[in-house]
């Protein structure tokens, strides 16, 4: 295994081991939530396998699924406020 990967989650620097998903990084950096639902409730990853879309976040300007995206060095992740 190579050394830790550094990325930013909502502006906060986070160091993770290789193979860590962005979904996991959301938990490591905060409460694990990814978005605010239409009704105002916070939501977090549900299915873990790219089906439910609950974990969609902005990664380097693109909307992507946290559960299917591994952390890479320098990544900028923004959860939906």
């Amino acid at each position: 295994m190579s050394s830790a990967i550094e990325l930013h989650i909502n502006g906060q620097l986070l160091r993770v081991t290789p193979g860590t998903s962005v979904a996991a990084a959301l938990y490591l950096a905060g409460d694990g939530s990814s978005r605010t639902a239409v009704g105002g409730q916070r939501r977090a990853p549900l299915c873990g396998m790219g089906i439910c879309q609950e974990c969609r976040v902005t990664i380097d300007g693109q909307r992507r699924l946290a559960c299917q995206t591994p952390c890479t060095a320098g990544m900028q992740v923004e959860s939906q406020p």
Binding site: V16, T17, G19, T20, S21, A23, A24, A25, L28, A44, P45, L46, C47, G48, M49, C67, P70
Partner: peptide
Amino acid sequence: TGAGGLQALIKGG
């Protein structure tokens, strides 16, 4: 989460 969902999330760290 889903049951498989939790497993997948755990594998992801």
